[in-house]
Design a protein around this nucleic acid. Structure first.
Lengths: 144, 144
DNA sequence: CAGCTTATTGCAACGATCTGCAATAACAGT
DNA sequence: ACTGTTATTGCAGATCGTTGCAATAAGCTG
């Protein structure tokens, strides 16, 4: 997890302001493990302080992302998901058949990066989206 | 493009009904080339017939997908995009730096499929999402 | 063709996300 | 501490997509 203690200064050094509502979002984030949906974060903030406005949370997440403190990706349904940075970047797999979810293994990631880089030098950001498909067991179980 | 002529029967054979509003969606789809956003489709249908209801269009798209006539994926922002099937399946690349968009080349696709399959037998559905990253020229232009 | 079954529609309302704009409040300067 | 600047907030409203439900209509059957 990032040094949440340093966040206020990080903001100020950029000419941004450290406000009560931003602290709320960062607090919620600091307590979050793994991934959180933007909507979930809004919810958590509202639990702490019912006056929280969704738009503020969304905007705060945007600036946190600009500052590199969080990263967002998209789940299977395209909805936003946030990862607290700088946890090791990792992508996600989702099996449309059984609904299972896994993280993308390093070897896989390497292979993918190469596949893209070698053809036209495209540098993939695997962490940005959920890769959908069929897991081995579902593929095996499928009637042929 | 699918044999749009056969669609009504395809519906009926499944016990589904062929309605005025479904015909409208299919008509719009038949005129569409490449990809369309669900929202765009709604818009086009409303141009033909202003009484078109969004929910009907969305629901029709769902059944068309179940029938295998269209496939949906998610754009960079996670919004839905529809491809008329069975055009060759293909995924998309999006460069976050210049905003460019390309289709994923076959060789890349093959490499990616292998990278996933070889580790744990996961069968990726590349067409489902937009792969984001940095294209060669943007990577080269980046200050090192 | 008339009747019946039930798939589909339209509506209304909701959840997630984003935007413009006027009011508010952080912070720098004195 | 007081003040001025301007980044942020809150709100109202907009867009995209989804869902429950009662009303409607497609297509089978006689």
């Amino acid at each position: 997890m990032p040094r949440w203690r340093d966040v206020p200064d990080k903001f100020r050094r950029r000419g941004l302001r450290w406000t009560r509502q931003r602290r709320a979002v960062v607090d919620a984030l600091a307590r979050a493990s793994g991934h959180v949906t933007a909507a979930e974060l809004v919810e958590r903030c509202r639990t702490d302080d019912p006056t929280t406005t969704p738009s503020t949370v969304y905007r705060t997440l945007d600036v946190l992302e600009e500052l590199g403190l969080v990263r967002h990706g998209h789940g299977v349904d395209g909805r936003e998901e946030f990862h607290v940075a700088p946890v090791a970047e990792h992508g996600h797999l989702y099996c449309t058949s059984c609904g299972g979810r896994w993280e993308i293994a390093d070897e896989q990631a390497r292979g993918v990066l190469e596949a893209f880089a070698s053809v036209d030098g495209f540098g993939v950001d695997l962490a940005h989206m959920t890769v959908v498909g069929t897991c081995r067991s579902c593929a095996a179980a499928r009637v042929p």
